[in-house]
Design a protein around this nucleic acid. Sequence first.
DNA 1: TTGAAAGCGGTACCAA
DNA 2: TTGGTACCGCTTTCAA
Lengths: 376, 376
Amino acid sequence: MVVTMQDVARRAGVALSTVSATLTSARPVSAATRARVVAAMDELGYTRNALARGLASRRSRVLALTYPVGTSGLSRTSAEFVLSAAQVAQERGYQLVLWPFGVADEAGIVEVAGQGLADGVLVMEVHLDDVRVRGLRAAGVPVALIGRTADDGPLPTVDVDFEATLRDAVAHLAALGHRGIAFVNHAAHRVAEGHGPTVRAAAAYERAMTDRGLAPVQVFADESVAGGRAALAGLLAADEAPTAVITMNEDATFGVAAELAARRIAVPRELSVLAVVSSPAVSGQTVPPLTTLHAPGAQLGRAGVDALLALLDTGTPPPPALLPCRLVDCGSTGPVPAPEPALAGAHPQTPTRDGHRRPRRRPARTHTEELDEEDV
Amino acid sequence: MVVTMQDVARRAGVALSTVSATLTSARPVSAATRARVVAAMDELGYTRNALARGLASRRSRVLALTYPVGTSGLSRTSAEFVLSAAQVAQERGYQLVLWPFGVADEAGIVEVAGQGLADGVLVMEVHLDDVRVRGLRAAGVPVALIGRTADDGPLPTVDVDFEATLRDAVAHLAALGHRGIAFVNHAAHRVAEGHGPTVRAAAAYERAMTDRGLAPVQVFADESVAGGRAALAGLLAADEAPTAVITMNEDATFGVAAELAARRIAVPRELSVLAVVSSPAVSGQTVPPLTTLHAPGAQLGRAGVDALLALLDTGTPPPPALLPCRLVDCGSTGPVPAPEPALAGAHPQTPTRDGHRRPRRRPARTHTEELDEEDV
DNA sequence: TTGAAAGCGGTACCAA
DNA sequence: TTGGTACCGCTTTCAA
């Protein structure tokens, strides 16, 4: 039925071990023999059996990718990451298996890792104190992290450079004259859980602002459209409403866009919006499209796989990699609105110090209402 | 280092084969021995080696999922599918490997399948004439399809019921009085490629319309925001502009929404929009949120894995499964606009027969322009 | 440079 | 009911 190495050996008139040698080049094989073996192989249509190879060599050439399940599906950015990881693995002669486990399911993950199907594990959505990582390390399973724990020790690590990203975001807006720059982060419970991106971005944003003598205004928004709407509404209701908003929460970003539309707020004339650690594929879907600091999803996948393979091959973890986000201008950021001259009475506004401005309060309306109003 | 079955056997004072038997229950084991074996196992922290087990039993308990690479990342619906497939596989004691291959890469897929890591393959995004499927069948690899080829023969198959979905979509809109119901399908090149969903939905839509004596108006839109905008613009420019639009092209749907916003078209008062084979997670992100015929992504994943496992277990393919989409009303569909009474002169319109209506032509504007106009 | 044989860690069949 | 053992298909010494 299936063609085995023994079949090839017989057809080529050599020993089984010689066939193996031509494949692995673990030992010299003369050109002549090699040619006969190769000929026999493709006459027979031979393919090496992955299971047997893995068992004998203690290297399955399979990598596992574990990601938290239960959370609202994969974001487009994460999906990008997964696909690129699978592709790079393939290019390297590896296969990628998916391990859907809860972030707290240490037992489950250690159990399946113990089965030895995978040579190593890529952990996504790493928490500052991550039981999965701890469990795998304790079990002696090679691990690479997408993200970082509080103390990675010698683990290979690739992550978004949140420090640089938020610094760049604030710098970009500050260069446009903004001083009231708010930040819509992930949900509050993420902080408590020690969700790396949330915590790191929060700190980076605060630092970037205070370094410039600006007052940070941070909102932890529920990861949903409603959460984003509420977040923006809250920001605009404040005494010192921001003139620019940075969003990192992909789901909430759609809500921010929706709220902007409902209030008929001109972007970027009245308010600048900058989506960070996002993807143009996502930001291009909002109305208006949002300028983005593009998360390096594909590069992260590539780097993560390569880091894990480096660990596997050399036994020592490669140095941690922090990848920057790239600015993609979709036109949603612009100069800070100038305080309106006193004589322009049509829309009274309250300019304040520091480039803050008090926009007129407009109630949010449903879109239907919004459109009905003037189209009837 | 690693605990082997032999270790367990020694500790329990039984033969290796007895340990195996307690695990596989392939043969009776007395309660007493079983207890001793089990005790030994968890004293030692034993876990069965997947590779060895697979090699010996000719069943790796690994399933492969292949999806076309190169196409613009995974749609949210597809991602939903992949995740649920991985999860169901896990529940069944299987692991899922990802095989990123081009739709035409028969050689690549057959090659990796020949390595025997996977017991069977799940093929996504199946084409009517699919070389991957042909190649795998010819190679004797168990296959299940997400989608259907033109002639599946005895292959296990799960798919969206496009016939029912488009029928339901048209029925839903027709019940609201619409007669001018247009359909924004995938890109034209998909038809040429024999992309199942595109072709089946196209036919189903035409049938659903003509069955009601309505004239089908179908647009094959580029899979992008721009494509969607252009599609809607084209429809509205026609002599008999539709009063309702069905969209199936997830990327273009965002464009349709954007164009609606740019033209300030009231949804659903002026135009009803219904996104089919989509996901509320997606439709909720547009402004306004779109009523959706929710694609059964998760169920498809579940059904696909189960179909493949059924084939693996019984040797005979289970009957094909067609899963319906479920209506999720987000308020973007409503009654057909009544032809305006002649005396209402504010916005001249041209009512036509058949419930068609000629909306006033409004040029599309950028959002910035749009908002600037009245907020300055 | 090549061949022979001992595992890798299990499953499955056989005899006891 | 249990123990012994022949493989599964390949990698990896070790001699020749």
